[in-house]
Design a protein around this nucleic acid. Sequence first.
RNA 1: GUGACCGUAGCUCAACUGGUCAGAGCACCGGGCCGUGACCCCGGCACAUGUGAGUUCAAAUCUCACCGGUCACCCCA
Length: 429
Amino acid sequence: MSKIPAPKGFEDILPADSWKWHAIEAIARELGDLYHFQEIRTPILEHSDLFHRGVGETTDIVHKETFTFKDRGGDSMTLRPEGTAGVVRAMIEHNLLAQEGSRAKVYYLAPNFRYERPQKGRLRQHHQFGAEAFGISDPAQDVECILLQMDFYRRCGIKDLSLQINSLGDAESKQRYRDALVAFLKPKVSQLSEDSQRRLETNPLRILDSKDLHDQEASKGAPSPYNSLSEKSRAHFDKVQQLLTRTTNNKQQTTNFVVNPNLVRGFDYYTETLWEVTASGLGSQNALGGGGRYDNLVENLGGRPTPGVGFGSGLERLLIALEAQGAQLPRPAQPLFYLTYNGEAARDAQWKLLYELRAANLPADMDLSNRSMKAQFKLADRESATHSLILGDTELANETITLKDLKTGEQSTIPRAHLLERLKSLLPR
RNA sequence: GUGACCGUAGCUCAACUGGUCAGAGCACCGGGCCGUGACCCCGGCACAUGUGAGUUCAAAUCUCACCGGUCACCCCA
């Protein structure tokens, strides 16, 4: 029979690596608690309209990168390409933003799907840690989200980090800037790359972060978005910077950031503050995560007008960056007792003991294939057992068991009656 | 969607211009060791070379297609 591979761009997380996921997920949840964001879980499948209306018809992600299909009833369904739209939909649907002054802070750990050509740091299914804060339009809410995100990276052990921020302002400011930019670039059309000549019509802001040298050259001296900001948007952005500069953690470190007037992001729903965090070790797809404010999204998706701000952060990319930067994720040292036996009677006794240990919350395992003692020890070693519990004729006769520390090789004989007590003393703390 | 490179045992790799080249190390299994692993020694299992077709007396080695991978563009986490 021929083998069936996993779909392109879809990865298995294997037993040897799952602990890393547990580690970063634990840190994410810990920070959710600390910042008082609560977990929300939404379906991976949504009506296609949600993303067309929410994320934006003209964004590439919705336009040509979704997994979209008709279900058996003929409805167009889409695997979620990003986290925010589904969260907003759920918040509206369950009337969590239905009253004046409603607010909510939520986070999620969830897979997203995009039909793209895989490369380093880019998969068709990837996982994100994201957070969204609804109901507060104050710039401090933007900053709280940024700080949560930065704390997440620091606690995971990322050293080499860079935070860039920008603001395109409210809808009118954004349009004003777009017009100014087009006016600036129009005369230089011929100098632009082919891609950017197209973008000049569809999404001129994107020209600013083009990697093409000609585009970068042509964009030099382009107007800054700051100059197109309305008074209110300008005040908002100024305040965000001020808070970022002033807010310190208990080690009195400020949060370093740079204002990058060329920073634009791929979703139509963003208003006001935008940010992106990059890290070394990532290759061409160097963004660890990004976020921004989206004050019109809730209303656009049929809810009561409610401001919102949040971020999404790619977990696969985080793991790549951690690896490249040589960072070590916390790995709790779990004890594991491996029961070995010599002979039929000993096996029966160990089988009973196995369940006694587990009932007492002592992680334990044993070989069930009647292998030699030597082989059983090899298995214990391979499974990273910390101790083995040896039972043979001698121990059976004396009602004892031999405890061996597999790291030091030390052995001691313990009366069966005192075993559990003794083993419990070996647990951490 | 575009481009480049790549695809040999579980893993890392080897096999000159197509012709005993299908191999090594690690891993795995067994034994040396009598009831004891992580060291050492011995033996063993395993791949006809991503899949399919073609060229040839002969293909892992050349051609084409498909599948997959890697990196980059695009886009973004």
